[in-house]
């Protein structure tokens, strides 16, 4: 009984915390089915549209080579896909990537992998930087 009560309280606590977070973000909690319906109803965002969301941490075009965060520009496609799928599956502890990756579909991960694989693996702030391979 005690244990059940404790668990009930715990889950109520988690729910209210979750509700707070959702309130702060201004949205409602969606089921997996609802999310799938939203994804299926629209054309997939381009690899670039998805990948440009990574730039705040990994640098413009994923080409920030001067920080501790790993650059993504020029990363091998299979490395990117394996890592993102591992993050999505919460295969090992990470700081934030498992919470970033869980929203992406296989096709979206692949589109981002293609995009980053096509970027030049050099620091983008270099004066002679040209971006993607010609």
């Amino acid at each position: 009984m005690k244990r059940t009560l404790f668990l009930a309280l715990l889950s109520a606590g988690l729910l209210s915390l979750n509700a707070q977070a959702v309130a702060a973000e201004g949205g409602a909690k969606l089921t997996d089915a609802q999310i799938k319906a939203i994804i299926d109803a629209q054309p997939m965002p381009t690899g670039k549209m998805l990948a440009d969301n990574c730039s705040a941490c990994h640098g413009t075009l994923g080409a920030e080579f001067n920080e501790a965060m790993p650059p993504l520009a020029g990363m091998k496609k299979e490395n990117f896909i394996k890592l993102m799928k591992d993050y999505r599956a919460n295969a090992f502890p990470t700081i934030v990537m498992h919470d970033v990756a869980y929203v992406f579909t296989d096709a979206e991960i692949e589109a981002m992998a293609d995009y980053f694989a096509a970027q030049k693996a050099e620091e983008w702030t270099r004066p002679d930087f040209k971006g993607a391979h010609e």
Binding site: M69, P70, P71
Partner: peptide, 21 residues
């Protein structure tokens, strides 16, 4: 290696998946 997040940058078996690490 796993719990202190080394794995994230240095790879599952210590083989880095990206070039900064």
């Amino acid at each position: 290696h796993k719990n202190s997040m080394c794995m994230t940058c240095h790879g599952e078996n210590g083989v880095a998946p990206s070039r900064n690490a």
